[in-house]
Amino acid sequence: MSPRTWTGRVFIATSLDGFIARPDGDISWLTNPPADPVHLPPTLPRTVKVFDQHMARVDCILMGRKTYEKVLSLPQWPYGTKPIFVLSSTSLEEAGEVFERDRIGSVYVDGGEVVQAFLRKSWVDEIILTHAPMLLGQGIPLFGFLEKDIRMSLRAVDVIEDGMVSAEYQVIK
């Protein structure tokens, strides 16, 4: 098998306890966080790779069906005109072949199950993981079973709006 020519990038947020959604798929805790009743001084945001900057670095988006359906329920489509591939449970290998055939350079990988599948295939090259200051206690985890350890190198950490912390990791291959 020839080396992969495209880069897999994950840009995703979780609760502090590692969940991407509540058990029923609800993400309102992330998209509409409650107002801070304590009125602490705001954290000072720094320059980070925000969503628009991340989108400028990718050629297309690949997401699972459940994530796609959740995004369709949002009030506004967040992905602009980027091509989107919706992955079914049977089309993982086909996705990699399409990226090679169409000479796609960089893929935004989204959705818990898709991220997990790409990690198992060693198809993730970097992860930008944002933690929201919220503990859910239960929900849909971002990371699931992996056959082996996946080492990462921390490249940057930034504080962004609403007390969120964003960490950028390079996957060590």
Rank of each mutant, 00 (worst) to 15 (best):
V50H: 07
G112I: 03
V50S: 07
T7M: 13
H54A: 10
F85L: 09
Q76E: 15
G112R: 00
V86R: 01
M63L: 12
G18T: 00
Q116L: 15
L119C: 07
S91T: 09
L72H: 06
I12Q: 04
P83R: 12
P41C: 03
T67V: 02
V98W: 09
I84R: 12
E100F: 06
D24P: 08
G105I: 00
V58E: 03
T31P: 02
H39N: 13
G80F: 05
F19Q: 05
Q116V: 14
R65E: 02
W6T: 02
K66W: 03
D59H: 08
E113V: 14
E100S: 07
S89Q: 09
E93D: 15
V107N: 05
S28H: 14
S28T: 15
G112T: 02
G111P: 09
E69Q: 02
F19R: 04
L92T: 04
V38R: 12
T31I: 02
Q116D: 15
P41L: 00
R120E: 06
I104T: 10
M63V: 13
V109I: 09
K121L: 04
L72I: 10
K49P: 12
V50N: 05
F11Y: 15
Y79N: 10
I61R: 07
G25F: 10
A21I: 00
F19C: 07
F99C: 12
P45G: 00
L40E: 15
Y79Q: 10
L30F: 04
V107E: 04
S15Y: 03
E113N: 14
A35L: 14
T47G: 00
I84M: 14
L44P: 13
T47N: 04
G64Q: 05
F85M: 04
V10R: 00
I61H: 07
D102R: 11
E93L: 11
D24K: 10
G25T: 10
V124I: 11
W77K: 03
R120V: 01
P41I: 00
A56S: 11
P83M: 06
S2V: 11
Y79V: 09
L44K: 13
T81L: 11
V107R: 04
R22M: 14
T7L: 13
R65S: 00
T90R: 13
P3T: 13
S122F: 01
M55I: 07
V71F: 00
G8M: 03
R22L: 13
K82W: 06
E94R: 06
V10T: 04
V115I: 06
L16F: 01
G111E: 02
I27D: 09
V50L: 03
H54I: 13
L119E: 00
V10S: 07
I20Q: 11
S73E: 14
Q76P: 11
V38L: 06
V109R: 01
E97L: 14
F99S: 09
D17E: 03
R103T: 05
V98P: 06
Q116M: 13
P75N: 04
P37Y: 03
P23I: 08
F11M: 08
G8Q: 01
M55T: 08
R22T: 13
V124E: 07
K66L: 08
V107Q: 01
L16Q: 00
A13T: 06
R57V: 12
